[in-house]
Design a protein around this nucleic acid. Structure first.
Lengths: 82, 82
DNA sequence: ATGTGACTGAAAGTCCGTG
DNA sequence: GCACGGACTTTCAGTCACA
């Protein structure tokens, strides 16, 4: 599993857990609205600076956003990367 | 402390802990030697893809390279970012 | 074995819009 | 509220020569 996909998933999951819209997150992190959308759809390779800014708004450590899921055996194949 | 600097330090520390030269690390990660040098000197905002490739060679999780030092009280002021 | 400036192509990232 | 596109600027990715 590519790191980009890990990031994309974590980003979306955490954002929704926080009850934020893409627009709100974008605004608070000082990032373009459409770019957040792209990141969640695994279109780009974000820089660590962007990861950190998003992590801050989401209230977690930057490392959290790059954490791979600890081998979910239920895990169906990804729909983000195929 | 900026995430870039955190990354730069962790990279250098882990590389040296592994007893690798920049050249060896560069070779194994398929990255140019001078680029590694730039990253360790905090010149660029690495992409998560690069972080992941380096982490793999260093035998750690990508998230490890972005972990902030847990507030080292001995910590003198950085020489990387001033 | 590393730091640095200069360089180029490629991708990141912004800003405008649409359905 | 989000996906997706086109056009645009800035920064990274990657290589070279040199100290």
């Amino acid at each position: 599993m590519e790191i980009r996909e890990v990031f994309a998933r974590n980003l979306r999951a955490l954002r929704q857990a926080k009850g934020l819209s893409q627009e709100e997150l974008a605004h608070q992190a000082g990032i373009d609205r459409t770019y957040i959308s792209s990141l969640e759809r695994n279109v780009y390779n974000a820089s660590i600076d962007v990861v950190d800014r998003l992590a801050e708004v989401l209230g977690v450590d930057a490392a959290e956003l790059l954490k791979r899921p600890s081998d979910d055996l239920q895990g169906s194949k990804s729909e983000l990367d195929e």
